[in-house]
Nucleic acid binder design. Structure first.
Lengths: 224, 224
DNA sequence: GCTGTAAGTAACTCATCAGTTACTTATCGG
DNA sequence: CCGATAAGTAACTGATGAGTTACTTACAGC
């Protein structure tokens, strides 16, 4: 997992200190990964340039091949890193309410907010799907991560059904795909949607409305 | 609008007849457009090769520049053509029931089936959004097409609210985005979803289940 | 039946860019 | 304190591919 902030390009001066860290494998690797995440998200797998990634990372292009083998290997590492990050956030999610309805609403809103705050994840996922998920399928890391949100949905569905607050017979995986999709589509397709509806989808008001709407849809559906 | 089937490469022999049609501008243009649709959908804007498009179309590469100016111009033409096609299908949609609930179910299922039958549309839209909708924004054609499905949703929402079958206060555009998104995401992200859930999302059974689920969500939400 | 223009061809150009080579230098375990 | 190895640099290469050039040929309108 990479902190995208606070990564100094390898070879840069330390904070305040005048000693120049001449070598720092960890940092070089991390700064290449961070730079690659930005570049791949902005320009796609084909569109991104290894020279630009290296320059942005403050590293030599040779180092990409040293650490990641190839441009595709680097892309795969970026995806693994990004998946690990979202799964980590999901696992850290603490729902503040024990009430299934309230908790489910929080979960849906969390999902919406996550896509809002991580546009690079949306872009990378789109890119990966354009390539038939070749890199995810090649990655043991990405495939072996467990899915905290699906577990959570399962648990809420069960409790809500028992208490009579939710309908019964809902497949948690289907619901997960719907919760993700209903928010994801809004962000992934916001450029064409904005152009066609001539609406500014990223305006604060539009975001607030949408957020409310997606919560309403899921909770409205789940009523018994 | 292009018929993707039955387009003979320019310069090919006619059916049965031995006369070789030496020149046919319409056909050359159409076959380039059809070939480009396939290539761009399969490999993206950067990934597609103009040489491959020309070969597939049975045309000379020069003709791409003759008719479309540039690779980007060709991509824009492909998008316009594809948008015109979906809007045309939407306009032709005849809901068989007057009952708002039944009609809305048919509309949602139609949307699902459309994405299922037109994977190239999903890919092209993804690609276009990866590029910030640059080509849609540049296209008067794409932006000026009206949106039959939004009109239809509006009308059904009104009738359903009046009859007490639907909740009130639903924004038709929000609902349109949700109906599209809930199906679109399933198809656009089916590669990564399949890999991660280790499920075959395109199996007939999975499709049937999903189709039922998306209809249930929308109708479940719309209950008063 | 001639002529201007649109349709078409084949071969070329030249910028771009992933990946490599051949090299130097820091670091750390023994 | 040495030598093996990992980290790092700068300059190169070779393939690729968008777009062009310089040309030929069909054909509609006169």
């Amino acid at each position: 997992m990479t902190e995208t902030t606070d990564i100094k390009p390898a070879g840069e001066l330390g904070n305040g200190s005048t000693e120049r860290t001449t070598r720092d494998p960890e940092r070089t690797r991390a700064s290449i990964l961070a730079a690659a995440t930005q570049e791949f998200a902005a320009k796609g797998l084909e569109g991104a340039r290894t020279d630009d990634i290296a320059r942005r990372a403050g590293a030599n292009k040779r180092m990409i091949y040293h650490y990641f083998g190839s441009k595709e290997g680097l892309f795969q590492a970026v995806l693994e890193d990004t998946y690990a990050e979202i799964r980590g956030s999901e696992a850290a999610l603490q729902l503040t309410s024990r009430d299934p309805v309230e908790a489910m609403g929080q979960l849906v809103a969390f999902s919406f907010d996550w896509f809002l705050k991580h546009p690079e994840f949306v872009k990378l996922l789109n890119e990966e799907n354009l390539h038939g998920a070749a890199h995810v399928r090649a990655s043991n890391v990405a495939r072996s991560l467990n899915m905290p949100l699906v577990e959570l949905i399962s648990e809420l569905l069960e409790r809500g059904a028992k208490s009579g607050q939710f309908r019964t017979g809902v497949d948690p995986v289907q619901l997960y795909i719907s919760i993700a999709g209903i928010s994801y589509f809004y962000f992934s397709n916001r450029y064409t949607l904005s152009a066609i509806f001539n609406r500014q989808l990223e305006a604060p008001g539009a975001l607030r409305e949408r957020r409310e709407h997606v919560v309403d849809i899921i909770l409205g559906y789940l009523r018994p």
